[in-house]
Simulated scan of single mutants.
Amino acid sequence: MNLTADLDLGAGLRLRTLTSQDAELVVQATSTETGRALWAAHPVGPYTLNDAHAALRAWDPDAGTQTSYGIFDKDELLGALGLMPDGPHSAELAYWVRPQSRRQGLALRGIRAITPWAHQDVGLTRIWLEIDPDNTASRRLAERAGYRYEQRLARHCRTWTSPEPENDTWHDCLIWTHTHPEPTPIPDEEDGQ
């Protein structure tokens, strides 16, 4: 599964796969963050250079497990999206925007670009978002991006107040999905069809 992307978002913005060379940009982008960023449950708040390198190694596109994509305005990282495959044709999509770039439509622009790309170029038939029921802005974003509410999972999501899952608290999550039908196989010309 090739998860490498470089997409034009318009207005001078690009969405491209993040690599280890982007560690300093992650540090800059998270410098004013007070909550969790996309790349890991911890650390909360700004990333150090070591944190950024560790996170980007965990999201290495060559590993084929999960990949992050930066939203760029020239050489400035404004936000990120992450695809986390959970099956051969399904992946969770996460998103994060740096504090000073929020409420500018960047997450929506990124989701609207990566969703058709992931369906067509990666072959995903189901892409899903995991949203805290209290996060009204994320629910609106999912709907505006063309995702549909699927279900509520009781006590499914961690709050990440403790590094050990058994000592953490869990809350309900809403699952919103975007589906694309399986591609129709093209018959071989040799079959005479």
Rank of each mutant, 00 (worst) to 15 (best):
R14H: 00
L15H: 09
L15C: 10
L15R: 11
T17V: 03
T19P: 03
S20P: 04
D22H: 15
D22P: 14
A23M: 12
E24I: 01
E24F: 07
L25M: 13
A29Q: 12
T30Y: 10
S31F: 02
T34Q: 08
T34L: 09
R36K: 13
R36Y: 06
R36A: 15
L38E: 07
A41T: 03
P43T: 04
G45S: 01
G45Q: 02
T48Q: 10
N50C: 08
A52Q: 06
A52D: 01
H53F: 13
A54H: 15
A54V: 14
L56D: 13
A58K: 00
W59F: 08
W59Y: 04
W59R: 05
D60H: 06
A63F: 04
A63Y: 07
G64R: 01
G64T: 09
G64F: 05
Q66R: 15
T67K: 06
Y69P: 02
G70M: 06
K74Y: 00
K74H: 10
D75E: 14
E76L: 15
L77S: 12
L78V: 04
G79Q: 01
L81S: 04
G82F: 06
L83H: 00
M84S: 10
P85C: 11
P88N: 12
H89C: 08
H89K: 06
A91G: 07
Y95P: 00
W96A: 03
R98F: 02
P99Q: 14
R103V: 06
Q104S: 11
G105V: 04
L106W: 03
G110D: 00
G110C: 08
G110T: 07
A113V: 00
T115S: 15
A118K: 04
